[in-house]
Design a binder for these strands. Structure first.
Lengths: 218, 218
DNA sequence: TAGATTGTTAATCGATTAACAATC
DNA sequence: TAGATTGTTAATCGATTAACAATC
């Protein structure tokens, strides 16, 4: 078994597995089968086994997967077994909200710098971090060993921020602005654009074309 | 056009097309080809033509697509040609940030009610809306004709909020909490969980040192 | 017209699911 | 052991891409 190309779909499921596994561990569950995971996630058990098998033999035949061990392994695969420092640009409401989110702290991701272009915001405090001027981005990224950038500025400014991130040598960007960004191929971009989710949700409403009441006939 | 089953992948691309088209219109571009759209979005032009052809013949051979006409058509497909009222539960930082987002206002989606479970937050103002107690949810949803719910509460409270939304007769939910929700099949749930995006991003960093040590050689 | 570009069918590619020997 | 469940191969399903006649 050699370095096989892992599809994006597989990688995207790993954090979801991690989420459920963390939950199981919190409830002191020792072992879980692909069947049980599949039930919880509405996924085919074979798919879960296959996903995990790309990375190693983590389970035990007849038993299932040890929850803590699998958590450890998935964290290794996602390279979350070592600290990963993150910068955020755009200290508006959304930026502040993300800074407060502690969810990924336990996953070794840490926002260590926040930037904004507006003089009125620069210098304010967010969670013990002082908002820095955007001009300080490049130097700070190098100094603090920051590898990921989060963009929470308005769409019109997002490309400019992306350019600055690239110039600063960032390796990956999480973009919240509802716009497409142009970056070199070697930079990884993920979109966290909830407007897309919200608009596509609208498509699925009112399936049968009936009124506001749901059809309760079988 | 018969009621052909449209795949989720297709529906998810529609809002992205809309985004680019809106941008083109803002720049007074009249007409666009699938080739040009493909360049902008890093998508295969044939895919774009096929996606659109599921819903009708929107283009003109030899010419391309009329930008304004296509915008209108996609908005119709997504049912955004009529107002869609949205409720939000969880008036913390993230909830406030979303309330401020005006992006989807122009797409006829409007947050018309905000709820929170904490007495200290209930009664405060967000964008001319008064935060209501969670107990008022059901009555308000009915009264204001709200069809979509947004969840921006901590993971531990998310299922409870989802249950309340379902009981209130909501048709779709956009969930920001990093947890899996259980709802009846007829309720559509979309996830806007950026922690998933952020964790999977970590996988792709550090390309050059990419060769994971494969544990099992068998 | 001649060049451009759609809508659509056919070919390809990739991802999911089923099945089962291995084995805890 | 006997039942359970993995890891993996083969079968199926679905989505993307190529190709091209139709036609603006």
């Amino acid at each position: 078994m050699k370095a096989l190309k892992i599809s994006e779909a597989v990688v995207r499921r790993l954090p979801v597995y991690l989420q459920v596994l963390n939950d199981l561990r919190k409830r002191d569950v020792q072992t879980v089968s692909s069947q049980e995971l599949g039930n919880k996630l509405d996924l085919n058990p074979a798919q879960i086994r296959k996903d995990l098998a790309y990375f190693g033999d983590f389970g035990r035949k007849g038993i299932g997967y040890d929850v803590s061990y699998l958590i450890e392994k998935i964290r290794q695969i996602l390279k979350l077994d070592q600290p990963l420092f993150v910068a955020l640009v755009g200290a508006g409401n959304l930026g502040r909200a993300l800074s407060n989110y502690s969810t990924y702290l336990k996953d070794n991701m840490k926002i260590t710098a926040i930037f904004d272009a507006h003089p009125s915001i620069v210098g304010t405090q967010i969670n013990s971090l002082t908002v820095l001027p955007i001009e300080a981005l490049k130097a700070t990224v190098a100094e603090l060993n920051i590898r990921v950038g989060i963009i929470t500025v308005p769409a019109a400014e997002a490309q400019n921020v992306a350019d600055r991130f690239v110039e600063a040598g960032i390796e990956g960007i999480l973009n919240f602005a509802p716009t497409i960004l142009r970056v070199p191929d070697e930079i990884r971009i993920h979109h966290a654009d909830f407007t897309t989710e919200l608009l596509s949700l609208a498509y699925y409403l009112d399936k049968e074309g009936d009124e506001l009441n749901e059809p309760s006939m079988d």
